[in-house]
Structures are given as C-alpha cells and as structure tokens.
Simulated scan of single mutants.
Amino acid sequence: MSGDADHDVCGMSVAIDVVGGKWKLHLMWALSARPQRFGEIRRLLTGVSEKVLAENLRHLEASGVVHREVYPEVPPRVEYSLTPLGVELAAALRPLEEWGEKYRNDLLGNLLASVT
C-alpha cells in the first residue's frame, strides 16, 4: 500500500493484514506471556512447520508487532517478543479470546454438526 490509497483502507483491513492467517493470532498468544525462542514457540504451536513459523514471525516483525533479538553468543540465541505495538494488539485481541472461551462448547458443537 502506498500513496493516497492508504487513506482509503479501513482499519479492519489493516488489522487483518497484520494478524490474518492460521498462525499469526496463535503467535501473538504465545508471545503475550513472555519472550520466546523459536523452538519454544514451535513446541507451543503444534502442527506448524518451521518454514511457516519463520515466515509468520518475519511478517509480524515487518509489521512492527514482534521484535527479534539476536544475542551474540555461541551458538547464537534468538528471542522473539512483542513490541509495545504488539502488546497493545494483544490486549485488543483478548476480548476475542474471551468470546471464544465463552462460546467454545456451542461453537464446537455447531462445527461438528455441520460436518456430519
């Protein structure tokens, strides 16, 4: 996005661009607790490939919501954490998580009923 067209894009579109997709919301959840190393995140998010995890972390970093810290050690240690913008986004996502928790059983029942 560039130029005057940026002003025509609604906030929801911008937010979806940042957190849309299967894994980005999960990454935000994983990083909201504390900074995590790549392997720790991968263990928390079962089913995500290393390639997809790395791509999603890069996208969140490029969006400014995740910070990647490389420590000059041997072997190198890399930690991912939320930036202040990411902390604010995580707080904005919390009501969505609460809604999901509140209606989990109903929603899962509806999903199961629709596939049978």
Results as ranks from 00 to 15, higher is better:
Q36T: 03
Q36N: 09
Q36I: 03
R37M: 02
F38W: 02
F38I: 03
F38Q: 05
F38D: 07
F38S: 02
G39C: 13
G39N: 14
E40K: 12
E40F: 09
I41V: 05
I41A: 01
I41R: 00
R42F: 14
R42A: 14
R42L: 15
R42I: 10
R43H: 14
R43I: 15
R43P: 13
L44F: 08
L44I: 15
L44Q: 14
L44Y: 13
L44H: 13
L44N: 13
L45G: 03
L45Q: 06
L45M: 08
L45Y: 04
L45C: 01
L45P: 07
T46H: 15
T46P: 14
T46Y: 14
T46K: 15
G47Y: 05
V48N: 04
V48E: 09
V48R: 06
S49G: 05
S49A: 06
S49V: 02
E50N: 11
E50K: 12
K51Y: 14
V52A: 15
V52W: 04
V52S: 14
V52C: 14
V52Q: 15
V52I: 10
L53A: 00
A54P: 10
E55L: 12
E55G: 01
E55Q: 12
E55Y: 10
N56Q: 10
N56G: 04
N56T: 08
N56L: 11
N56S: 08
L57T: 04
L57A: 00
R58T: 04
R58C: 07
R58I: 09
R58L: 12
L60A: 01
E61P: 00
A62L: 10
A62E: 08
A62Y: 03
A62C: 04
S63M: 07
S63H: 13
S63G: 10
S63C: 13
S63R: 06
G64T: 01
G64L: 04
V65T: 03
V65G: 01
V65Y: 00
V66I: 03
V66F: 00
V66L: 00
R68F: 02
E69M: 10
V70R: 08
V70N: 10
V70T: 07
Y71M: 13
P72V: 13
P72S: 12
P72I: 05
E73L: 15
V74M: 15
V74K: 12
V74N: 11
P75W: 09
P75L: 06
P76A: 14
R77H: 12
R77A: 11
R77L: 13
R77E: 13
V78E: 11
V78Q: 05
E79C: 10
E79P: 02
E79L: 11
E79K: 14
Y80L: 06
Y80M: 04
S81C: 07
L82T: 02
L82G: 03
L82N: 00
T83I: 05
P84W: 02
P84L: 01
P84E: 01
G86N: 05
G86W: 03
V87I: 15
V87C: 09
V87S: 14
E88Q: 12
L89Q: 05
A90D: 07
A90K: 07
A91L: 14
A91S: 12
A91Y: 10
A92L: 10
L93K: 08
L93W: 02
